[in-house]
Design a protein around this nucleic acid. Sequence first.
DNA 1: CGGCTCCTTGATCAAGGTCAAGACATGTGG
DNA 2: CCACATGTCTTGACCTTGATCAAGGAGCCG
Lengths: 233, 233
Amino acid sequence: MKKTKTIPSCKDCIKNNTVFKSLHQNDLDILGFEKSCNFYKRGDTVYHEGNRVGGVYCVSEGIIKIFKTGIDGKEQIIRFAKKGDIIGFRSVLSNDTACTTSKVIEDATLCFIPAESFINLVKENGDFSMKIMKLSCKELGEANKFIIDIAQKNVRERLAEVLLLLDDTFGTDNNKILQISLTREELANIVGTATESVIRLLSEFKQDGLIKLNGRKITLLDINKLHKISDIF
Amino acid sequence: MKKTKTIPSCKDCIKNNTVFKSLHQNDLDILGFEKSCNFYKRGDTVYHEGNRVGGVYCVSEGIIKIFKTGIDGKEQIIRFAKKGDIIGFRSVLSNDTACTTSKVIEDATLCFIPAESFINLVKENGDFSMKIMKLSCKELGEANKFIIDIAQKNVRERLAEVLLLLDDTFGTDNNKILQISLTREELANIVGTATESVIRLLSEFKQDGLIKLNGRKITLLDINKLHKISDIF
DNA sequence: CGGCTCCTTGATCAAGGTCAAGACATGTGG
DNA sequence: CCACATGTCTTGACCTTGATCAAGGAGCCG
């Protein structure tokens, strides 16, 4: 199942519902000309908290985690980016240094769109600008939700929620196996807890028949009950 | 010191650095015509989580708290809005229901700008749209920071940080008294903890000579030490 | 085979949430 | 003016949650 790594054309890429979808041929051509493309392996850093970003990355293939680093270097994963998503636009638009680090979780192909090109698009194209604005608002809404979750739910409830979130974002195959593979530590860094707590709760969920575990493969057996655990509001 | 309540003119209002500052006279006239203005008392709700908002509110006077409601109705305050700030733009731009409730903390004068007028401005005015985008990105950055704070700092550190945040946002008078008056419960709802914990920690801070307490008036005696407590990264 | 990294489990302990009770201030109606 | 109710603040006691530390197991690779 190895894919040959070829530089993706924007024309193909926009089929996955990227924000660039509504661009006219003209803009698209310019974009294709000004972008550059790179391949990343698991563990590679795309950009690092505190640095200038210089442009926006569009995920053509693979999975990226976006996190902040806190006490003792403990990561807090804020969100993921997958095929069709863009990352780094906050820093570019605010002309600010990155407030997060982004690292590759699954080998990725990313296109880099220089800040100038991106900002030009935003300024000249009302529809596009509206899309970016909506994207930003969407992330803001999700961040707000995340805040109250961490502040008020307990670890058990949050873990259930994270499993459902991963289901929403990456889906499961026909065997109900989550289509993203995370270490226990990474799971803990989403939930905002210690690795050991995640392990204990996962095996509790397993005991209760909610999930099945096989290494990093997690099978979601009972979505309904997971919802009940996480949706306490 | 009672102020007479008069309907503010946009021309005067934009002196407080609102996002509308860069509008041309023409747009400003339209805005002044299409907006409506209302007076609110402490405790009044401006809009409620889950409802459609219908427009953007611009704070001409007073203080608003923006919060989400969680378990047992416990509030989590996300941010405040004061003179010159706008609220509700996320819902308007996403054409989504409000994901937060906003209530008046200090008697307020708010101007309401219908969604349509606001969206028109965004669409037609590149500069304005850029400003809103930056605002949205700024809030997004703050929300991200908030997430890792709640996830990784302890209550003591977070309380110190909140006091500094309030200082940044509302300032102190010549006696170093914070220029916002919150109940202990409201403080707890920003920090994300129980009221009793806030009370205990406040009196600890008092004991250590960091602050002085007089009812709801909080005097910030030692900003440096507060920084040291909160900035553990 | 040794040396990784990651996973798992048990034991312990502290932070902070919860409950209960009383203090204090403020407002209201008789 | 008092009696009472109400809302906020404060303090003490207790207990749950979840973090931390420690040790061992499983899988993988050069």
